[in-house]
Nucleic acid binder design. Structure first.
Lengths: 148, 148
DNA sequence: CGAATGTCTATAGAAATAGTAGAGTTACAC
DNA sequence: GTGTAACTCTACTATTTCTATAGACATTCG
């Protein structure tokens, strides 16, 4: 299961992707439109900002906007930022590798082989699907094919 | 990430699969061999027993054994028992479906479409890989093909 | 009988999740 | 140049989940 926070993040990004590229969208508007607790959303967007996904303008007429085109923002990228590693086992994580202290010998680990396949399959989907695909489902098959 | 508990469960099952089909293996032996806290493993095996995966014998010369052949016990089945739903979203779970209260209209949910693909890909691997595959990695490709 | 083994329930500490609170900073409008 | 509407940042909290541990009980074999 992905966290609620990740779901909020992805939905917030679809709102930004739907908006004019140069028109900031206020946190309150995103929160209202997607039924996200406003203060919680603040944290999420700030996090995304610190990771270079979105930009913000302060003060009146402020708000958030995408820092790069929607079709370059993948689901996998966002999930990594919000929920952490994609991999089902620490010893299979690309970004946060950690040895399993209870299994000796990764080559021999009977579990690892199976979950390596799971991780591959999951990554294939998550990193070939973008925010742009999400807001234009009709288009997604085509984009997926282009990125394959 | 799968839980430590699920990892323990899968590893314990590989031990049972490796043993003689009619020779019960003691909890202590499994725990020692796989470095699993014994009392924790007790709970896990009991849980697996209640779900019809393993059987047990009490008293001296007691222990646990598989209730069905190793090649019929899938990773997905075990993960469901120990960790719960496979699906990344409650509204995509087969065994524990729950409506997302914040998204109105599942057909329109932009997130759901993507994670449905993730769920499919994950299930494909998890339910076509068995404990038998885990203990005989060389054989796994063939079995996977047969089950496909 | 008695010792070895599984059964069951309860408890507990640590971490993660899902928020909430509030003081601070910036920038536009007037 | 002031006020106010917005984002920024840190801290706090309640709830749940995870990872065990403890101990009394039941069963079986020798």
């Amino acid at each position: 299961m992905i966290t609620q926070k990740a779901k909020y993040a992805l939905r917030a990004l679809t709102v930004l992707a739907d908006a004019d590229a140069d028109e900031p969208v206020m946190i309150s508007d995103i929160a209202a439109q997607q039924k996200i607790p406003k203060k919680f959303l603040e944290q999420i967007l700030l996090d995304l900002k610190h990771h270079g996904v979105v930009a913000s303008r302060r003060g009146k007429q402020g708000g958030y906007l995408l820092l790069k085109p929607a079709h370059t923002i993948t689901f996998g990228e966002i999930l990594r930022i919000i929920d952490g590693p994609i991999a089902p086992l620490p010893c299979l994580s690309i970004t946060a590798y950690r040895r399993c202290d209870d299994c000796d010998g990764e080559q021999n680990c009977q579990i690892r082989h199976v979950f390596a396949k799971v991780a591959d399959a999951t990554r294939k989907v998550l990193f070939s699907t973008t925010i742009a695909d999400a807001i234009a489902p009709k288009h997604s098959a085509e984009v997926t094919r282009l990125l394959a």
